[in-house]
Design a protein around this nucleic acid. Structure first.
Length: 302
DNA sequence: GCCCCTTTGAAGTTG
DNA sequence: CAACTTCAAAGGGGC
């Protein structure tokens, strides 16, 4: 089972001692697309997981939470001995204890962070799988990957294949741009770890909180994500890594640039105000927002 | 009917 | 190379 494979990796993780490189920042992984850009044809599927036994594991990072005296699950462990993780913002370490921003959406008491997250179990009697993300790949050959469900990024040129529920934007795009465009389908970005987590947990949050607005749900999910243990997060990083690997193999020449400009942002300035306007802090958010008071955000979850 | 909101992460672009 | 931007999902809400 794939799950078993993942869990085995985590069992190993639980036992790995910090090497001599402890105290240093993790070495950023080379961008997957660039690093493994197939210059000599499409890579084979079989080596997909060969770096589970990489002969040249990179040093694991220091545990910044120990350095800071607090437990934060934000710092993703470098599991390079088992698989590569992320670069970029994941290498940015938290330096303070606060939530990224106060919730802009009022949350019902039943969705209070204190009581409910990370929610370990579902309602009594209802099993709550800790990791039940549906298979993402089509015929990947990965143990545990069911071959019946197509990859979300796989878009049939002829439209014969049934669209998945999450192909909403694709469908509207194809519908709105006519037949010519429909025959040239968009290959979407592979989902990152957080997106995979959101897809899995969204329904649960909706059920718990009786919310429907995605913006509010995503705020909750973002906080739950931060509350996950590193092992729990690592499951999703691993899934996301495999997503990228398969995506890269399916679409060797694809670039995220291909989809640039296909979403039209009407108010770029406003978007920048809320989303940029400065360097991201260690939490991956922006100083202006992070500095805002968060009166009812409990610390008990840390 | 399209875009915004809101989240994190990956990757592309810019200076 | 750091900083910034875009896009992945989701669906209610606004225009």
């Amino acid at each position: 089972m794939y799950k078993d494979t993942v869990y085995s990796a985590f069992n190993l993780l639980m036992h790995y001692p910090p090497p001599s490189g402890a105290g240093q920042h993790p070495q950023p992984q080379p961008p997957l697309h660039k690093a493994s850009q197939p210059s000599h044809g499409v890579p084979q599927l079989s080596p997909l997981y060969e770096h589970f036994s990489s002969p040249h594991p990179t040093p694991a990072p220091a545990d910044i939470s120990q350095k800071q005296g607090v437990h934060r699950p934000l710092q993703t462990p470098d599991l390079s001995g088992f698989y590569s993780l992320t670069s970029g913002s994941m290498g940015q370490l938290p330096h303070t204890v606060s939530w990224p921003s106060p919730p802009l959406y009022p949350l019902s008491p039943s969705c209070g962070y204190r009581q409910h997250f990370p929610a370990p179990t579902a309602a009594p009697g209802a099993p709550y799988p800790r990791f039940t993300h549906p298979p993402l790949m089509l015929g990947s050959g990965v143990p545990g990957h069911h071959a019946a469900i197509p990859h979300p990024a796989i878009v049939p040129p002829s439209g014969k294949q049934e669209l998945q529920p999450y192909d909403r934007s694709l469908k509207t795009q194809a519908e709105s741009k006519g037949e010519k465009e429909a025959k040239k389908p968009t290959i979407k970005k592979p989902l990152n770890a957080f997106m995979l987590y959101m897809k899995e947990m969204r329904a649960k949050v909706i059920a718990e909180c009786t919310l429907k607005e995605s913006a509010a749900i995503n705020q909750i999910l973002g906080r739950r994500w931060h509350a996950l243990s590193r092992e729990e997060q690592a499951k999703y990083y691993e899934l996301a890594r495999k997503e990228r690997q398969l995506h890269m193999q399916l679409y060797p020449g694809w670039s995220a640039r291909d989809n640039y400009g296909k979403k039209k942002r009407r108010s770029r300035e406003k978007h920048q105000d809320s989303n940029t306007g400065g360097k991201r802090n260690a939490f991956g958010t922006y100083p202006e927002k992070a500095a805002a008071p968060a009166p009812f955000l409990p610390m008990t979850v840390l």
